[in-house]
Write a protein that binds this DNA or RNA. Structure first.
Length: 466
RNA sequence: GGUGCCAUCGCCAAGUGGUAAGGCCGCAGCCUGCAAAGCUGCUAUCCCCAGUUCAAAUCUGGGUGGCACCUCCA
């Protein structure tokens, strides 16, 4: 399998630190607000990555953190007159629910900042002891970027001297402008923790490095983890700083492979709160089946920027519909456990840096070919068994088509409406039987008015939400 | 200003040296009482200019046009 390494800027073959195993760490959300489509995209990308790694036989350990210590959380709590814990628990819970709705599995490890303080203290101490960090008179602890000869090699950034001078003056206690906080002295009582360095809060970058050491790092490997992922905006300064902390406090570099997913824009504009409802995942879930959102957000390569708009989403839905129609066509039949050429090809496409587009092309070709054969006379027993196996594989590795196909096509329809439609279909079939096509067509118009389409098949009349 | 990314059919989108995947939309047809679904057929030489090469959407240089990061935002 091959992965595009966003630090080396090239596609590299994936060779794990430990044979047969893969460790993955992804920067998760700060739980102070509802998840937006960008969070969904990131979670989806790395959910797909773990599935593809597993399908390739790797024993995957996936960790994604929850940042529950942050100034924005404190601000929100104050605004809503709630406790920090009420805020973080509420948004952690909604994050989990919404991710589940788009088929994102929970990571194996989900560390929280509040539960990782000891690990952070240990890392700060190591950095101080080794001369990579210093405490100021005000009680803050900073990472000394000038002590790390490899600083900025990750993001390949060039320090701007003018800007640097300017910032040094505005923050006189820092040795270098680029130095970042490991521990922030806070004495207002809003949210402070006792530490060997005084009361305060950890710097944001620290938790990821500390959690990785605590949960994933292997003692004698050249890298702490195989893969580190996150949004494209995290490369600098977040990941640059994480990498610096880790290499200066341990005997290994942070990650062998770095993966960064592209951004989600809305109708051509960068997401901003002023754009309203489509911004949040929870609002999108009211309008569309979570799996449609999953399919749509995953249908473009993860490294490209993604432009979310209704037209393309509907186009994606139609594509997913085809998978479900084939499922419907083969509903209730037994599947083969034999390998198929399709499965091999699909995994091959996805193993090439998650080339979902190629995978979808293979899926569509498989569906068309299968339908074509099924349209001809014959039982096609083997084809049906293999096709079901193919569909199962699509579910496993891409998470598409996991629902009951009949329920999928009834998204958002209440029971009363469903019963009403069933009644009208019954009446229409009677009219059809009597060859009273005028009545049957009138009844069909009534059914269509519910926003569904209907289809007469040899197995009866079915309807689908449009 | 610094660093980097991108530009393929009306729309979405693969493809990193060998003569352009797939989907949506559209048109024609098969099927159907008529539809829907399904199936068949049809639709691009890859932003512009120059260069390298037997051969370039794919490499190099220049241009134009988008975009991202450089402010603890995925």
């Amino acid at each position: 399998m091959h992965i595009f390494d966003s630090v080396q800027k090239t596609k590299r073959e994936f060779i794990p630190l430990e044979e047969g195993k893969a460790s993955l760490y992804v920067c998760g959300p700060t739980v102070y607000d509802d998840a937006h489509l960008g969070h969904a995209k990131s979670a989806l990308v790395f959910d797909l990555l773990t599935r593809v790694l597993k399908a390739n036989g790797y024993d995957v350990t996936y960790a994604r953190n929850i940042t529950d210590i942050d100034d924005k959380i404190i601000k929100k709590a104050a605004e809503q007159n709630k406790t920090i814990k009420e805020i973080t628990e509420f948004y952690t819970d909604s994050f989990h629910k919404e991710m589940a709705a788009i088929g994102v599995a929970r990571p194996d490890i989900e560390p929280k900042a509040t539960e990782s303080l000891e690990a952070m203290f240990g890392m700060i101490q190591k950095l101080i002891d080794s001369g990579h960090a210093y405490a100021t008179a005000e009680g803050d602890v900073y990472f000394d970027t000038s002590s790390d000869s490899e600083y900025l090699t990750l993001s390949k950034r060039v320090q701007n001297e003018d800007e640097r001078q300017e910032r040094v003056e505005s923050s006189s206690l820092k040795k270098n402008a680029a130095d970042f906080a490991l521990w922030k002295s806070v004495k207002d009582g809003s949210l402070t923790y006792d530490s060997p360095f005084g009361a305060g809060r950890p710097g944001w970058h620290l938790e990821c490095s500390a959690m990785i050491e605590k949960h994933l790092a292997k003692p004698n490997a050249a890298f702490a983890v195989d893969i580190h992922g996150g949004g494209a905006d995290l490369l600098f300064p977040h990941h640059e700083n994480e990498a610096a902390q880790t290499r200066c406090s341990s005997n290994h570099a942070l990650a062998n492979y770095w993966m960064h997913n592209g951004f989600v824009n809305i109708d051509g504009e960068k997401m901003s709160k002023s754009l309203g409802n489509s911004f949040f995942l929870k609002d999108a879930l009211k309008e569309y089946d979570g799996e449609v959102l999953r399919f749509y957000l995953l249908s473009t390569h993860y490294r490209s920027n993604f432009n979310f708009n209704t037209e393309d989403l509907l186009s994606a839905k139609k594509r997913l519909d085809k998978i479900y129609r084939l499922k419907k066509r083969l509903f209730g039949l037994a599947e083969s456990s034999e390998p198929t050429a399709f499965k091999t090809e699909l995994l091959k496409a996805l193993s090439d840096d998650l080339n979902v587009s190629s995978a979808l092309a293979l899926i569509d070709e498989m569906i068309t070919k299968t339908n074509e054969t099924l349209d001809t006379a014959g039982k096609h027993k083997e084809l049906k068994r293999d096709t079901l196996a193919n569909l199962s594989f699509i579910e496993e590795v891409l998470g598409f088509g996991v629902k009951n196909p009949f329920e999928y096509f009834q998204f958002g329809m209440d029971e009363a409406t469903k019963e009403k439609i069933a009644e009208l279909i019954e009446k229409r079939n009677e009219a059809k039987k009597a060859k009273d096509f005028e009545s049957s067509d009138k009844l069909r118009d009534e059914i269509l008015a519910f926003g569904v389409s209907i289809m007469d098949t040899p197995n009866g009349t079915f309807w689908e939400k449009v």
